[in-house]
């Protein structure tokens, strides 16, 4: 495994930027309005679905999906970075919740 190479033998000065020590991860972040928050766009879409003849639709809430790939030393580090991103930028904690899935992708 490439990540088992020691820093000394790679010739890299900086561990966090050494391509031989990093693995690539793919994350999918789902951002959703909190249940208590009004979603007028979702409501309007639900009404349009009814006009299309789709019956029985009880609720429709619109969120966002963000796909990203990042290089990190470990899955734990990748997860920490994505969590920071979600908390500080991708979702607004006042109105939104987020979930994520993360997996390593072989180059």
């Amino acid at each position: 495994m490439h990540r088992n190479v020691s820093v000394g033998s790679t010739g890299c000065q900086d561990r966090s930027n050494c391509p031989l020590l990093l693995a690539r991860f793919h994350a999918r972040v789902q951002v959703q309005l909190r249940p208590s928050v009004l979603d007028p766009a979702g409501e309007a879409t639900r009404a349009a679905a009814g006009r299309l003849g789709v019956a029985g639709l009880q609720s429709l809430r619109i969120g966002k999906a963000v796909e990203l790939s990042l290089d990190a030393e470990s899955e734990a580090q990748a997860r920490e970075q994505v969590q920071l991103l979600c908390d500080r930028l991708l979702a607004n904690p006042v109105t939104e919740n987020w979930t994520m899935s993360l997996e390593e992708r072989k180059a």
């Binding site: 928050v37 009004l38 979603d39 007028p40 766009a41 309007a44 607004n92 006042v94 109105t95």
Partner: peptide, 17 residues
């Protein structure tokens, strides 16, 4: 100001869209 945390709360889509 709300996004940067200087004021509480958030502003979302108008009720009538």
């Amino acid at each position: 100001l709300t996004e940067m945390g200087l004021l509480p709360g958030a502003l979302t889509r108008n009720r009538g869209l």
